[in-house]
């Protein structure tokens, strides 16, 4: 797939994407939550929600 000469930007993006995908998938298959996005997002917006609707 990568046999064509590509720019560095393309390689970096693709490698990063694959890297993240693999890490995330492994963490999923291993049952370890390395990226608890929902917790982070929740922590960010819980106060806002509580402010709007009073918890």
């Amino acid at each position: 797939m990568n046999n064509k000469a590509q720019s560095i930007k393309y390689r970096v993006t693709l490698t990063a994407l694959w890297g993240f995908t693999i890490i995330y998938t492994i963490s999923f298959l291993a049952g370890k939550q390395l990226f608890p996005f929902d917790k982070w997002i929740g922590a960010l917006f819980k106060p806002v929600y509580a402010m709007m609707f009073g918890g």
């Binding site: 590509q6 720019s7 930007k9 393309y10 993006t13 693709l14």
Partner: peptide
């Protein structure tokens, strides 16, 4: 988006 970022 990825296409745009990578310029591919």
């Amino acid at each position: 988006g990825l296409k745009h970022i990578s310029g591919h």
